[in-house]
């Protein structure tokens, strides 16, 4: 059984892990946080699932446990399974009808477990509704993501990109500073970001140029901070 630290190139900060099994209240709380992040781009919120759910939840499915001894042995580990915060949008939103894909090997390993948990089908990068990226996404991969159509822009993919650090505090040192403007932002707002590579902003601008088509994104740090970037947000690299 993969442990959390084996699967990730960057270790998740303590306390930031998201459990694989979420109860209704946790799902609603995390959904709210993610929706707020997209509604107010530049406002960075910390994702928290709260207390890890009681492992007795595995006792609610005795029929499945009895069917297959392999599943029975796996159950305690399944109940204790947890993921990096960047997986939160998939754990909350992905299901049978939302194909998912990963851009790098580290993400792909965890994606298999996420797919098993959510029943989301694994697919190619250009057909996925949710895309998981641990390492900074390559420009060519970003360009390949499904940006929807003019008639059905909501079918575009959602990128969940792990980053090292996000901050709205000017005193916190980060590799880059972005100025954001657009719907949901009063004038402009500034965020500090460490993680995405130099070409990311330009590559994203190209993918979001053809509104209503475009790709929406969550940048989520290993500490669990979320920056929501809907396709309508314009980013200017100010440092």
């Amino acid at each position: 059984m993969n442990t959390l630290t084996e699967a990730h190139p960057r270790p998740v900060e303590p306390g930031a892990a998201i459990p694989g099994l979420l109860d209704a209240e946790q799902r609603q709380r995390m959904f709210r946080a993610l929706m707020t992040a997209l509604a107010e781009p530049g406002r960075i919120t910390r994702l928290s699932a709260g207390p890890v759910p009681n492992p007795t939840v595995e006792a609610e499915s005795p029929a499945i446990e009895a069917e297959s001894p392999a599943v029975e042995a796996e159950s305690p580990a399944v109940a204790a399974e947890s993921f990096a915060p960047v997986a939160a949008p998939l754990l909350v939103l992905a299901d049978l009808l939302t194909p998912v894909a990963a851009t790098d090997e580290g993400a792909a390993a965890d994606l298999r477990r996420i797919a098993a948990r959510t029943r989301a089908p694994l697919t190619r990068l250009d057909r996925a509704r949710f895309v998981l990226a641990y390492a900074p996404i390559a420009g060519t991969d970003l360009a390949a993501l499904d940006a929807g159509t003019a008639l059905r822009p909501h079918t575009a993919s959602m990128l969940c990109q792990q980053v090292e650090q996000l901050s709205t505090d000017p005193a916190t040192p980060t590799a880059a500073t972005w100025t954001l403007r657009g719907p949901g932002i009063d004038g402009t707002t500034t965020v500090g970001v460490t993680g995405p590579d130099v070409g990311f902003v330009a590559a994203r601008a190209a993918v979001t140029a053809d509104f209503p088509r475009g790709v929406d994104m969550f940048l989520i740090s290993t500490a669990g901070d979320v920056l929501g970037l809907p396709r309508t947000t314009r980013i200017e690299v100010t440092r």
Partner: peptide, 8 residues
């Protein structure tokens, strides 16, 4: 609408 779709 908030419930995950797990199977058909």
């Amino acid at each position: 609408s908030t419930l995950p779709r797990l199977a058909v």
